Amino acid sequence: MKSIFLRNNLIYIRNKSMVFYSLFSVFISLIIYSLFIGRNIESNFSENPYGNIIAQQWLLGGILSITPITVSLSCFSIMVRDKYYGALDDFFIAPVKKYEISGGFILSSVVISLLMCIIQILLFIIIIAENPLDFFESTQFFKLLTALFISTLFGSSMSYFLSIFFKNPSTYGSANSLISTIIGFTNGVFLDLGSFPDSMLPIIKLLPTSHISVIFRNILLKPRISTVFDNTDSLLLRSFSENMGISFYIGNREISLMESLIYVFIWSSVFFMLSVIKGNKNDK
């Protein structure tokens, strides 16, 4: 496991195009934010001193929700390429347990995804944040780190499962682009969830990827918007939270942050188990 982990990390770091495209989503999101989304959100809070920070944290939450998935998909292009050139067969005939091989690939993806997320947070604060010292509250860091770990674990497990079905690197790359684009929309990165038809919202609420977006935005924005909407109707606060993807509701009950974290973790376990089952069938 350790050898595969170190090997994949070195391959990824030395591949400049992989690193570039892992960070590319930040710059695309920043452009869309600057031209469209940011102005609309900031205009709604033009008289509030926290208006700019709310808009910026909303965008960062969206970026962090897709990064663990896009980076993980990119990481597992290494495994697809190994499969294409026959290197993966050498791993499986070696005297190494299969779960150690799977664990090495997934652990490598988790570490790289975490690193890319941290770099993106730093880039975002440097480029966008007007007051970096006021961008985070001290109570948010532990929650943010927990969310980053669970989201990268999910992204790695899901990407590993998906990569099993591909044998050609070019086909896998095309699928990556399609998956990343779909997740970008369903996570409310390019459009807020209030812009979607009501018929789509129940489907979006079932997607673990959408819960990742809600998790990050809940952590980043909940303390701030609670202050902003302190003296207003609770229905207005709920409407804003739902439309902006800060909270999910089932009926009149808000899905808690812990419930969303558990939901994403369960899906991580499901994808990992499916990967092991599928991998064993392919070996027979």
Rank of each mutant, 00 (worst) to 15 (best):
K222E: 15
S210V: 10
L162I: 14
I164E: 15
F166E: 00
E254F: 05
P197Q: 01
G188N: 02
L178I: 14
M158R: 01
I255W: 04
L206W: 12
S247E: 09
I182N: 01
F240S: 11
M200Y: 06
L221W: 01
L207E: 02
M244V: 01
D192F: 15
F161S: 09
F154L: 03
F154D: 03
G155Q: 04
S234L: 10
I250L: 11
I203G: 05
L237D: 07
I215R: 08
I250M: 13
I164G: 08
T171P: 00
G194L: 08
I164A: 14
D233E: 09
P169D: 04
G184I: 06
I204D: 00
S247W: 08
R224D: 12
G251N: 08
H211Y: 13
N187I: 07
T171C: 00
E242P: 00
S226C: 10
S241H: 03
F240C: 05
L207Y: 08
R217H: 03
G173Q: 06
S234C: 05
S247T: 04
R217C: 00
F166W: 00
F248C: 00
G173E: 06
S239K: 14
S157D: 11
S234K: 11
D233K: 11
S226Q: 14
S174M: 10
K222N: 14
T209P: 07
S159P: 09
P202V: 08
E254P: 04
S157I: 08
N168A: 05
K205R: 14
F165W: 04
I182T: 13
L221I: 10
M244T: 09
V228F: 07
G155H: 07
K222Y: 15
P208T: 02
P223R: 09
P197R: 00
L206Y: 12
S239A: 14
S239R: 12
S213F: 04
I212S: 06
S210Y: 10
L191M: 15
G184K: 00
M244R: 03
S156T: 09
L206K: 12
L193T: 12
S180F: 00
G184N: 04
L207Q: 05
D198V: 10
E242I: 09
T186N: 06
H211L: 07
T227W: 11
G155I: 02
I182S: 10
R238Q: 14
S234I: 14
D233G: 02
G194R: 03
L207S: 13
